[in-house]
Design a protein around this nucleic acid. Structure first.
Length: 481
DNA sequence: ATGTGC
């Protein structure tokens, strides 16, 4: 049998295509953004997932994957797929288990020279103040009524309850909360899991990093964003914790029995879905937004803890900690996009993909309407991270989306095997990065070698016009969950 | 990702 790989053709330096009609049940193109270097890392199973997404009903225009594509649950990680609002579908696999996993970047007024010799002490201070690790409980004890308000108000709840700052809201995607949520769509089990995990980092690839601006690519945008050379910045990567995981798990189960009952034929049993306008679809959408709001709140509360840690440590409140931006990279959103010259409402699934709206976009406000949306793309814990800006072409190419990170190269098991052969912590520290974690195993799974080269990912999305580099950040201290 | 897992 001919491998699916043989149907993949290069369009240009950054794009590859499987054309519609070339495989069974494919009425839309499959596009994957890859330079020639990253093409070598493309997994066959992830490519098959991209193709299977194209087989879902009422998919619009194309099935898309970013250069950080790798295999996920049903949909590939790095995947973007939009469905028609009137007749289309929503699928939990198109969002993933960590609903509204995302990144935020905080800026400071201090430079790397003010931090270098203190990094171990400050990072330890933060490590003590921000709960991390699998199953970790938060410092907040929430009542069921608190949770009810959190899933409705997102980051606004943190602001109203003394764990956040009002000026941050306009620097969070969607203003820090999505209105279409409904507590009634949640299971008792998810509610229980949500009660004690607010304000916690979690585990796996979630992290909290102290970085500095090492390179500036766009002086004007850097200065508009308040970025300067050698400035200390904080990158935070976390999501909706066990709460969002339970929501996804609940609805994968519900959709599975529903799809069986309706005798829906799926290209992959992990691709369960429901019509967006059906009771099932609406329930999942409302529950997913509960988890999205929970995650926006989580990142705001953790940022509050980080600010306190800095102020305690430096014994001054003049650190100038402020939010640059907070993006979601695992979410489904109702958005308007232009198709064949007409504005259409779509359900855009971004699963390991970052929104990348350019300047002038109607959903952007204030300064960001003039500059475009900041896009936060983390690499591995040594190579560093990029702050980019939304590109005009993303609207035509990828429903206003770009990559979300370096993307895994090795599976967690493979990574542990490689890492066990050497003193990984020593190697990381030799590269100038101090690392703390609740679990040695997490570090073994998260070694730099486990990830693709962030430079290739950034180059690919830049050449495709999806987003453009503004600055590069290099880590000096990392907390891994 | 996850009170990791048949």
């Amino acid at each position: 049998m001919k491998s699916i790989r043989n149907f993949l053709k290069r369009i240009d330096e950054s794009r590859m295509i499987i054309q519609k009609g070339s495989l069974d049940g494919i009425d839309v193109d499959c596009i994957v953004y890859l330079n020639e270097e990253l093409e070598k890392n493309l997994q066959d199973d992830a490519l098959l997932q991209l193709v299977n997404v194209a087989r879902l009903p009422h998919i619009v225009k194309r099935s898309i994957a970013m250069p950080d594509i790798h295999s996920g649950y049903g949909f590939p990680i790095g995947g973007v797929a939009a469905f028609d609002f009137e007749n289309g579908i929503i699928s939990p696999g198109g969002v993933g288990y960590d609903i509204n996993c995302g990144i935020r970047c905080l800026l400071t007024d201090i430079t790397v020279y003010d931090l270098k010799d203190k990094i171990k002490d400050l990072l330890t201070r933060i490590f003590l103040d921000v709960p991390s690790g699998i199953g970790s409980d938060g410092r907040l004890k929430l009542s069921k009524n608190d949770l009810k308000r959190i899933v409705r108000k997102g980051a606004l709840w943190a602001v109203e309850n003394g764990y956040g700052f009002e000026e941050n809201l306009e620097r969070i995607e969607s203003g820090g909360f999505i209105p279409e949520s409904d507590f009634a769509s949640l299971s008792e089990k998810s509610i229980d899991r949500g009660l004690n995990q607010q304000g916690t980092l979690g585990s796996g690839n979630h992290f909290l990093e102290l970085d500095y601006v090492s390179e500036i690519f766009d002086e004007n945008l850097a200065s508009s964003f308040g970025l300067f050379k050698n400035q200390v910045a904080i990158m935070l990567h976390t999501g909706s914790r066990g709460f969002g995981h339970q929501v996804c798990s609940d609805y994968v189960d519900r959709f599975t029995s529903y799809n069986l009952k309706e005798k829906i034929i799926l290209p992959d049993r992990q691709l369960v879905y429901a019509s967006f306008k059906s009771v099932y679809g609406k329930d999942y959408y409302h529950a997913m937004n509960c988890a999205a709001n929970y995650a926006f709140c989580n990142r705001e509360i953790i940022s509050f803890f980080i600010k306190k840690s800095f102020e305690k440590f430096y014994k001054t409140d003049k650190i100038g900690i402020r939010l640059l931006y907070d993006v979601a990279h695992n979410i489904a959103k109702v958005e308007e996009h232009t198709l064949d010259g007409k504005t259409k409402k779509l359900i855009v699934h971004r699963k390991g993909a970052t929104r990348s709206f350019p300047k002038g976009h109607k959903d952007l406000t204030g300064l960001l309407k003039k500059t475009g949306q900041p896009v936060l793309i983390p690499g591995d814990m040594v190579s560093g991270n990029y702050i980019m800006v939304g590109g005009e072409k993303s609207l035509y190419e990828s429903f206003g989306s770009t990559a979300h990170g370096a993307g895994r190269l090795l599976s967690r098991n493979q990574s542990q095997k490689v890492a066990k052969r050497k003193d990984v912590i020593k190697e990381i520290e030799k590269s100038g990065v101090f690392v703390l974690s609740q679990s040695r195993r997490t570090i073994l799974e998260e070694i730099p070698e486990a990830y693709k080269d962030i430079e290739n990912v950034v180059e690919t999305v830049k050449n495709a016009g999806l987003s453009y580099p503004v600055v590069k950040l290099l880590p000096i201290g990392v907390i891994k969950g």
